[in-house]
């Protein structure tokens, strides 16, 4: 299992983990029609926001509520806290309507991280689906910052349509690099789309990596992760080398409220990143 963060340091305001710290929105960028990224800066206190790829924050919009959002920025540049969010509920929609200069509450960083250090020396396969690209982007940053420590780096990314693809410019840049394999696919190719069409699991079969010597990190909706994990196993990847990031109802984010339990696991503190072999048994259980 990915390490449990024995991280008792303050993640909230005044050492109270339930009280949000204030961050100001410095930049707001629309990524897709319903997705946006925000760059946040602390209003007071330490300027750096250290986090590990895969960790999340509880983001509070004044009066509206709080939701868990994974961090999508660059862990090697902790002076910039970046979140990419899809506006699907009241809180995220309220975030969407905020402008630069307004503030949000932040509690975090919380939860476990992707095994970027354990993966050193291996090929790394990232499988992202939809908004699942956001929690994996910090991994890409990290890997690129330590490129020499890894074998092949493969990013497989599926989105619904070409206009749903996140971070398009960045992906183009990565695609043009010779030391990265970036494959993108969409469910429905519309407009001038020339790329792959089909679900992301289709890409796993032909992706160039050494299945005996690789670490796979999968992030997306649960069903996509399930099929991706199956696809990876068909390619011969050991369940122990596959990692997934789970989603459950997180209210406190710190393992106290009980809402995010999945069997014996608290997704917020034992996860969100889990080793697939640890949760394989309970992954497909109904209503667990």
């Amino acid at each position: 299992m990915a390490e449990i963060q024995k991280n008792k340091k303050a993640i909230g305001f005044k050492d109270d983990p339930m009280m949000p710290r204030q961050f100001m929105i410095q930049r707001f960028r629309r990524d897709t029609v319903d997705t946006f990224s925000m760059e946040l800066k602390p209003v007071s206190g330490p300027k750096k926001f250290d986090f590990k790829p895969g960790q999340f924050n509880m983001i509070y919009v004044f009066g509206v509520g709080e939701v868990p959002i994974s961090i999508s920025g660059d862990p090697t540049r902790p002076e910039k806290l970046v979140h990419t969010t899809r506006a699907v509920g009241n809180v995220t929609k309220a975030m969407d309507s905020l402008k630069s200069g307004r503030t949000l509450g932040v509690r975090g960083p919380l939860g476990t991280s992707w095994p970027v250090e354990e993966a050193e020396g291996n090929d790394v396969v990232l499988v992202a689906g939809g908004i699942g690209m956001a929690p994996l982007r910090p991994v890409m940053y990290y890997l690129l910052a330590h490129r020499e420590n890894y074998g092949k780096i493969v990013l497989l990314y599926g989105a619904r349509t070409p206009s749903d693809i996140l971070y398009q410019k960045e992906l183009e840049k990565w695609r043009s690099r010779l030391d990265l394999e970036v494959h993108i696919t969409v469910d429905r190719g519309t407009g001038s789309w020339r790329g792959n069409v089909g679900v992301v699991t289709n890409l796993i079969g032909r992706a160039p990596f050494d299945h005996l010597n690789c670490t796979a990190m999968v992030c997306g909706p649960e069903i996509m992760m399930r099929f991706s994990a199956l696809g990876l196993q068909k390619r011969g990847v050991e369940p122990a080398d596959i990692y997934v990031s789970m989603e459950r109802n997180m209210k406190c984010g710190i393992g106290l409220c009980g809402h995010c339990q999945m069997g014996p696991l608290f997704v917020c503190k034992d996860g969100p990143v889990f080793r697939y072999s640890d949760i394989k048994e309970i992954f497909t259980r109904r209503e667990y």
């Binding site: 004044f62 009066g63 406190c252 106290l256 409220c257 009980g258």
Partner: peptide, 21 residues
């Protein structure tokens, strides 16, 4: 049993809010 809910509430005066456990 320790399960709790966190409720973020705003008032009629939209300038005030509270968090209740």
């Amino acid at each position: 049993c320790f399960c709790i809910n966190i409720e973020d509430i705003s008032g009629l005066e939209v300038n005030s809010a509270k968090r209740v456990r």
